[in-house]
Structure formats: structure tokens, C-alpha cells
Nucleic acid binder design. Structure first.
Length: 189
DNA sequence: ACCGGGATGTTCT
DNA sequence: GAACATCCCGGTG
């Protein structure tokens, strides 16, 4: 994808990311669920209370990956959006496994089925081996072998929209977007 | 199928 | 010292 694709408000980028591909070597997944986080205007965003060492990548230029560690054991991955200094991002929450499933399984030994390889933000991070070493990777130039690609499949004309999952502050904001009925959603829908 | 609780440690108050 | 953009397992129905 181009830099300008990401350099918009995360609430605009999020639905446009649906049906795009996450590519890392043999591993490929189609994006079916995302959430937008909007910097200073969003109480659920890590950037709400300003810049810290942890969220520094969010404040940088668009098109880079922001990876954070949570619950003492999980990584989650965001795509940085907006303009430099703005701190808006899109959380990747669910992918349909497309290729490289054997490699994904190897990194997700506890997954009950292939449907669960990438059906959640920490699950897909595990399946694609996304950790701290990927924080800041430039997705536009396939930095560290990771990129987001367009295979010509358009986003759904009418995506599912709901409140974001697992947040307390800003719980009412409808900034989760998903492909209805897709394999790899973090919840049935 | 659905629900409840424990794991585990970084980050910020 | 509390909260945390979660996951997994084992219980029950």
C-alpha cells in the first residue's frame, strides 16, 4: 500500500483496510476485523494521555507498525495512521488465514482449529510472530519482511460496525469494523 | 455453546 | 498498587 493510503484519519483507514492482505514471507492473512483509535480525542487510545516510551511509534509517520505488550503475555499490532505527530492507529483484530498455514500453526500450538489461528489481536500477532522487534517496521517498504498488500479485492460495501472490544473508556464509540460472516473474526458476526 | 476465572508482567498513578 | 485494546482451559447446560 502507499504512504498516502495510511496518512488519513484512522476511522477512514480502518474500513478501507478490510480485505487487504497482511504478508510476511510465506504467511498471508486477509484483514477481516479492525478497530480505530484516535489519539488525543479518544479516551481508549494509548496516546490519550500523551507520548510515552511505549506509544512513541503511534506519534510517528503513517504506515508503520505499532506493537505493544499487554496482560503480561500478549502482543498486539496496529497500523499507524494520520499525519506525523497525530497518534491515530488501527488495531488489527482478525485475519482469515490465506497461505503459510503450516508456519502459523507452528507458532500457535494451542490453536484448536485453523479458524482460530488469527481470530483475535494477540492470536494473529502470534501467528505472524509480531513482537517488540517489529515495532516501528515500515509496512510500505516491507521493512523486516512485513507488508500490507492489495490483491484487488475491494472492502465490503457495508461492513459490520460495532463498539470496540475490551475497552472501558470510550466504550460507546462505534469504531470496530469487520467483514460480516468472515472466517477469523474474534467473535461470531 | 456459553460462561467464569487464572495466568503474567509492563506501564503508569 | 491498579489497570490492562487478551487468551486458554475447564466447568456446566
Amino acid at each position: 500500500m502507499t504512504r498516502s493510503f495510511f496518512a488519513r484519519d484512522s476511522r477512514a483507514v480502518a474500513p478501507d483496510l478490510l480485505n487487504k492482505l497482511v504478508v510476511r514471507g510465506e504467511r498471508v492473512g486477509r484483514i477481516v476485523e479492525v478497530e480505530a483509535y484516535c489519539g488525543s480525542e479518544d479516551p481508549a487510545s494509548h496516546a490519550y494521555r500523551g507520548r510515552t516510551p511505549r506509544n512513541a511509534t503511534m506519534f510517528g509517520p503513517a504506515g508503520h507498525l505499532y506493537v505493544y505488550f499487554t496482560y503480561g503475555m500478549h502482543f498486539c499490532a496496529n497500523v499507524v495512521c494520520g499525519t506525523d505527530g497525530e497518534a491515530s492507529a488501527v488495531l488489527l483484530r482478525g485475519l482469515t488465514p490465506v497461505a503459510g498455514l503450516a508456519e502459523m500453526r507452528a507458532h500457535r500450538p494451542l490453536a484448536r482449529s485453523d479458524r482460530d489461528l488469527c481470530s483475535g489481536p494477540a492470536r494473529l500477532a502470534q501467528a505472524f510472530s509480531l513482537d517488540r522487534t517489529l515495532d516501528g517496521a515500515d509496512l510500505v517498504i516491507a521493512d523486516r519482511g512485513l507488508s500490507i498488500e492489495d490483491d484487488g479485492t475491494p472492502p465490503p460495501p457495508a461492513p459490520g460496525v460495532s463498539a470496540r472490544i475490551g475497552v472501558s473508556a470510550g466504550a460507546e464509540l462505534p469504531w470496530r469494523f469487520y467483514v460480516r460472516g468472515a472466517v477469523g473474526l474474534s467473535r461470531k458476526g
